[in-house]
């Protein structure tokens, strides 16, 4: 017997996993790998921002910390890629804990929390751009050396399956959380902190748990990024682009819903590709479309694509029943 909510996760994962059997285009795999990396980063955002209601504008900080930890350990210290991955995830969790402790204890919420996360990410960007350790403005290159031990794969479908495995694990973890007491507490904190406190919820601890899990997931996405592109610089690692991607995907797909980030990431980037194929090489046109979609979703379907589907299904089933 499969527990509540896992069936859709398994189905979606299977569908993506089987694509190499029917598709062999490299651009498709490039596209899918990037979307999966974004979906993983966005799942981190979704845990904190979607389920927990603490909107972050600075998830780049976790993405960048993951990416740089993995790169620095491998290039400067010759640490094994998989061990670097574990260290990077731990670093993301720790960063979450520190930022969470500072800002949640200071009582920052809503816009203030969003701004302080943005400021932390920007601070790290400026530091990474100036520091020797991170290669400064030139960035860091990972040595090309394909092989499982180095977590590098010359076959794109193989790397896609690796990214998919990460996403699958993040989906299962999120679903587990949603089904648990911690998940209920997190939602309660999002909905009404005072009421949650009155019911015995330790609000600060719940938020800290959420932000460190969130940081860990998004850091893992940063690791995948460097393992795929073998290059990182401060603009990629800590730039506002990934903070926005991590936020947009769940917003569009359905914030607070387990499959929201994945669905949102595919929809947005699918839409982006379509737009580019129509509009040609107009710079920024895909982001303009994303922005309009974001505003339209907030205005007309605040729970995103999945929310819309659920609403339609409810209407359909209640009509069928009547």
């Amino acid at each position: 017997m499969i527990g509540r909510g896992y069936l859709p996760i398994i189905l979606v994962t299977l569908v993506i996993a089987l694509t190499p059997l029917v598709i062999s285009s490299n651009s498709f795999f490039n596209f899918t790998v990037l979307v999966l990396i974004i979906a993983l980063a966005a799942q981190g955002w979704n845990l904190l921002g979607g389920i927990g209601g603490q909107t972050s504008f600075g998830h780049a900080m976790f993405f960048g910390i993951g990416a740089y930890t993995a790169s620095i350990l491998q290039t400067h210290l010759g640490v094994n890629a998989w061990i670097s991955l574990v260290a990077a995830i731990a670093a993301g969790a720790l960063a979450g804990l520190i930022v969470g402790f500072l800002s949640f204890r200071a009582g920052l919420r809503g816009s203030y929390f969003a701004l302080v996360t943005l400021a932390f990410a920007e601070l790290l960007r400026v530091l990474a751009n100036a520091s020797e350790l991170t290669g400064g403005a030139a960035g860091l290159l990972l040595k090309l050396d394909p092989g499982f031990a180095n977590m590098q794969f010359s076959s794109r479908p193989t790397f896609m399956l690796l990214a998919l495995a990460f996403v699958f694990v993040s989906l299962v973890i999120t679903q587990k959380i949603v089904n648990s007491r911690f998940g209920a507490h997190l939602v309660a904190v999002r909905e009404n902190e005072d009421a949650a406190k009155a019911l015995g919820v330790d609000v600060l601890t719940v938020k800290l748990k959420a932000i460190s899990l969130s940081g860990a997931m998004t850091a893992a996405a940063g690791v995948l990024y460097v393992q795929y592109f073998l290059y990182i610089d401060s603009g990629i690692a800590f730039g506002i682009w990934i903070s926005i991607e991590a936020l947009l995907a769940p917003m569009i797909g359905g914030r607070g819903m387990v499959l929201g980030p994945l669905i949102g990431a595919f929809t947005l980037h699918g839409l982006g590709e379509v737009t580019k194929s129509f509009a040609g090489r107009v710079p920024g046109i895909d982001l303009m479309v994303f922005a309009v979609v974001l505003i339209v979703v907030i205005a007309f379907a605040s729970s995103g694509i999945l929310g819309l589907i659920r609403k339609l299904a409810d209407r359909f089933s209640s009509k069928g029943g009547a």
Partner: peptide, 19 residues
């Protein structure tokens, strides 16, 4: 009153029961 407005009645009460 301070309901968890986005949740249904059962979910609201369950938060309390988790204590």
């Amino acid at each position: 009153v301070q309901p968890f407005a986005g949740l249904n009645v059962h979910e609201n009460i369950t938060v309390g029961a988790y204590l």
